[in-house]
């Protein structure tokens, strides 16, 4: 690399990173998410009691939050604060496993269908449509019911099952976008240069699908949290598993909502909601960064001074800058 170029590269990389964090939605979203990730990692360790620890075997009245039990106790005198701290790990693990598996599946099916076309496209599209048409929660319930009891507590397995019901939407969107991209001139140029099929998919098409991939991943994670919470709430998950979903499930079983014990169902529900909000904020933020038009409206009046971002204008300005330096 020539010495002329050296000062430029870090500037570009630095600009990109700070731009990412300068977007308030991304900043807030990642802060909240970071908090919950830390909670998932260290929550079970810092919890004052274990999840099945009971303060008393005689008392069967749920106690409201107090100095001794920060979030109160449930009917069986479990410490709810400890349960809340410990319950994040499984919830987030399952959601992210579901997100990763579903994204990988949707890329495999969607991009292959879009790029290969013809018979392969037809078969893969039919498969996608079948999974789209089936109600996801129903598949989950059937599959979970069929599993032996010991397995309904395994987070990786649950994540995989949730992914099975969540990949089709992403595959469909990715297929459509790949169809649009594969006739782009740069893909044709790559073929003319002699690039292979796999190389074109991985290096020419996939990078351009990243914004869609990111949003589809985040959506699946949100869906995964919801699906897991609903599954536990429905009692399909091994209840000895401590998670926000199982907490909600037991709260519902003891009709906590009607008896006014808000400290029982409120905190886990809020946790689920906040993780969802954090991921949604991240998603919007990524959208803004990827889509220059949205960025320009955000930076409109009251934003930074200087030329507004416009397609077609910037390259000329940048090019001249390059010549002068």
């Amino acid at each position: 690399m020539s010495p002329v170029l050296r000062p430029r590269l870090p500037r570009r990389a630095g600009g990109g990173r700070s731009r990412l964090l300068r977007t308030p939605k991304v900043a807030v979203g990642s802060l909240i998410l970071l908090f919950f990730v830390l909670l998932a990692l260290f929550g079970p360790m810092v919890a004052p009691h274990s999840t099945d620890w009971r303060a008393s075997r005689l008392d069967n009245v749920p106690h409201p939050p107090s100095g001794r039990f920060w979030l109160g106790t449930d009917v069986q005198q479990h410490d709810l604060f400890s349960q809340l701290l410990a319950g994040g790990r499984d919830t987030l693990l399952i959601a992210f496993v579901a997100g990763i598996i579903a994204t990988v599946l949707s890329v495999l099916v969607g991009v292959s269908a879009g790029y290969l076309g013809g018979r392969a496209d037809e078969v893969l599209s039919i498969l996608t449509n079948i999974f789209l048409a089936l109600p996801g929660l129903l598949i989950l319930m059937v599959v979970m019911k069929m599993m032996p009891d010991g397995d309904t507590g395994n987070p990786l397995l649950i994540g995989a099952v949730i992914a099975l019901s969540a990949w089709a939407w992403g595959a469909r969107v990715l297929r459509a976008q790949t169809l649009a991209l594969r006739n782009q001139d740069y893909v044709e140029s790559a073929r003319v240069v002699g690039e292979g099929r796999v190389r074109i998919i991985l290096f020419e098409i996939l990078p351009n699908l990243l914004p869609i991939l990111a949003s589809s991943f985040i959506f699946t994670v949100i869906y995964g949290i919801g699906a897991y919470a609903s599954l536990s709430w429905l009692g399909l998950i091994n209840p000895t598993n401590a998670s926000w979903g199982t907490m909600l499930n037991t709260a519902q079983q003891f009709s906590a909502t009607t008896s006014g014990t808000w400290w029982w169902y409120g905190p886990p529900a809020l946790c689920v909601a906040f993780v969802g909000i954090a991921l949604a904020l991240l998603n919007f933020g990524i959208d803004e960064i990827v889509n220059p038009r949205m960025r320009s409206t955000r930076r409109g009046p009251g934003g930074r001074r200087g030329p507004r971002f416009q397609l077609g204008l910037t390259p000329v300005v940048r090019a001249e800058e390059g010549i002068r330096s």
């Binding site: 170029l5 590269l9 390059g322």
Partner: peptide
């Protein structure tokens, strides 16, 4: 040297 590390959108 000034063109080699540019991205297409930086060129006319």
């Amino acid at each position: 040297e000034s063109y080699v590390d540019k991205y297409p959108h930086e060129l006319s």
